[in-house]
Design a protein around this nucleic acid. Sequence first.
DNA 1: TATGAATGAGGTTTCATTCAT
DNA 2: GATGAATGAAACCTCATTCAT
Lengths: 221, 221, 221, 221
Amino acid sequence: MLLTVSGTVFRNYTERCSDFNRRLWMSAQDTPVTSPRRQRADARRNTESVLEAAKLAFAESGVDASMRDIAARAGVGVGTIYRSYPQRSDLIIAVFRRELDATAAEADRLRSEYPPAEALRLWAQSLAQFVATKRGFSSALHSGDPAYQPLAGQFLGVLALKVQDILDAGAADGTIRSDIRAEDLIHALSRLADTHPADPDDRAMRMTGVLLDGLISPTSR
Amino acid sequence: MLLTVSGTVFRNYTERCSDFNRRLWMSAQDTPVTSPRRQRADARRNTESVLEAAKLAFAESGVDASMRDIAARAGVGVGTIYRSYPQRSDLIIAVFRRELDATAAEADRLRSEYPPAEALRLWAQSLAQFVATKRGFSSALHSGDPAYQPLAGQFLGVLALKVQDILDAGAADGTIRSDIRAEDLIHALSRLADTHPADPDDRAMRMTGVLLDGLISPTSR
Amino acid sequence: MLLTVSGTVFRNYTERCSDFNRRLWMSAQDTPVTSPRRQRADARRNTESVLEAAKLAFAESGVDASMRDIAARAGVGVGTIYRSYPQRSDLIIAVFRRELDATAAEADRLRSEYPPAEALRLWAQSLAQFVATKRGFSSALHSGDPAYQPLAGQFLGVLALKVQDILDAGAADGTIRSDIRAEDLIHALSRLADTHPADPDDRAMRMTGVLLDGLISPTSR
Amino acid sequence: MLLTVSGTVFRNYTERCSDFNRRLWMSAQDTPVTSPRRQRADARRNTESVLEAAKLAFAESGVDASMRDIAARAGVGVGTIYRSYPQRSDLIIAVFRRELDATAAEADRLRSEYPPAEALRLWAQSLAQFVATKRGFSSALHSGDPAYQPLAGQFLGVLALKVQDILDAGAADGTIRSDIRAEDLIHALSRLADTHPADPDDRAMRMTGVLLDGLISPTSR
DNA sequence: TATGAATGAGGTTTCATTCAT
DNA sequence: GATGAATGAAACCTCATTCAT
């Protein structure tokens, strides 16, 4: 499902979504997602319900959650969702966007308040918490499915920028090795954090710790 | 799909597959999978085609690849697959089994030929190569879906045993930290290695390296 | 197929269909099936086609007719049928419902216009005609398959009520023996009437006549 | 399933089975089924197991019981069944044949020992007992499915002959009405007797009684 | 603009029948 | 003769997506 690769899908995607994505991408450069200039009150209410419903559904069933289910939770018709989010990935992006912004902001804050190595460790925890409540998010991110391309672009674009700052600072003062790019690190961290509820609780955290130990110079541990 | 949880499914599964799994599990203890006493020539040929086709399909589309597709690739009817592998997980296990045996054996060999830290690094590469050609394998392993329980049991059982030996040896001579269990490590390594063809080629290897650096004491790097 | 007996089926059935059945059952008490408040024009058209197609298919191949076949006849997708009738039995009920209402009403009419024995004979012909065009209906009714429980409940509930009135009247004036319950009679009549096109045309009618002769006192024949 | 009507089936049927059926039909005229002149001991043993297994399977699941199931019960391969009984109906006939012969013989015996009306009532009970243990037999008999043509031919041929004698005797002495043919009667009786385990126990017997009351003149009841 | 009915490809699974051994 | 592996059509059902209203 994640991996459907069909000419039609591609074409549809390109045709219909470029607008949505272009808009979103631009906004990603500098500002949080902007609402359309004027939105009818009921439309705004719907948008809100949909996002909330989708968030719950994603948390429970992963990003493959049924659209019908999401629509039902939100108390709207499926068509309403498709109108705002022509692609599933658009919905995913929208759902996670705010929290992601927070996670990105957290990177900024931590960098300014802590030495780089410390900041990195703390931020890894932020990310882990973000991912832990978003089952399937990491898989989607890694799937290579063209439908999730924008997802990867968005998330990595936003986060990598901030995290790279921390890495650079760490490289400058010698506490963090300098041969790892932020994007690769985020990928790895999100992979390690994407555990299943049935997994041992601390596995993610433990292995994340090991990874960071490998990244941070021994003297500053 | 991954998350179907129904009493009936469970019961069916147990009823119908216990033989298959028991046989497989026993064989996992010490020997490669044994063929039935006498197998018709065409049956053997088909078994081979099916495994090969499934391997390709899994590599391309992940472990959720359609049975119909696999059957078509193998040039057999779907029924043929279901006869030998009543559950999807049975097929997955069978497909990956041989290579897994090799990977497990490799762990043994490396342990006897190299110092623990070195052996671990080399073996991580084996695993990475194994996983790299098995898209979705890692996800299935982590999914928590009861259908993949046997998969997790099989693979982790076989591998963790061998890898723990390496870890223990490393703990004994102080080159590997002793607070990480083999199972957690395998999970983490398989997560990091489960990249997409479109991903930068060396990302997996680079991040795996970082993880191992965190695991292996600096003096022995 | 008729005999599938699985907890899951039961549960699913109850969960998903209770609405449909509750609605139907209530309507069975006093009024014909009511349409949903507002039905789209095409939906109404489709509902009609589906019922007509199903009726034909059931007549030709019995109530086990393939859903795909019915959908094709109706010129709709299978999903359309499943949307309105989540279970095969729901469709069967819907198909036969209108005519059944007519048959039940006929019982009322006949009772008020004819002496009981006469009314019974005439009504038996109504039922025979109803059944004759519904191959497999009687078998489904008798199958004991839980899926057809509602079918049996519906039909017998609706018909037995009316027919019992006739029987009671006949018992009162001594023209009909009083030791036979309406439900048993309906069962028997539907059995006898469930003939095959290839059977001699009048077999059903003839044997029905014999049965009624055994039920109606000789003096009033 | 009962009602598959396809050109291919027809053609196959005619081509392959004529021999089997011709042989069987002839034997039906005067003698019980004859075994092939010489049958290997193991073949005879298998034939026996298959018939027994099929009988059980038919009783449990009706005449649509899975061939695989029957073969498994008999401890033989499905091919073995197909060798002896190229068509499902051939197996059904063979399975029920002996008991049917007994039922037919019973008709003879009863006719010679009782007055016609009495004999008819008693025989109806024999038939009811026969049918009661053969779920689906009656439906198959009435299905009109060409595959069951031989079944109908066989059974009705054998039974109707004997029962007609009773009817004729009853017509001669005025105790049984003379306008009903044995074949129609057998059909009707088997219909009424084909109840479901869940049905009220005595429904079949009660309604059969009513039918016979309609057939037997009041003075001789 | 919002709705949800309709679509239909696609999934898994079963099983009567054939045929290589 | 006997076996049971293989076949593959066909069943049921689901759901992402479209589009008439």
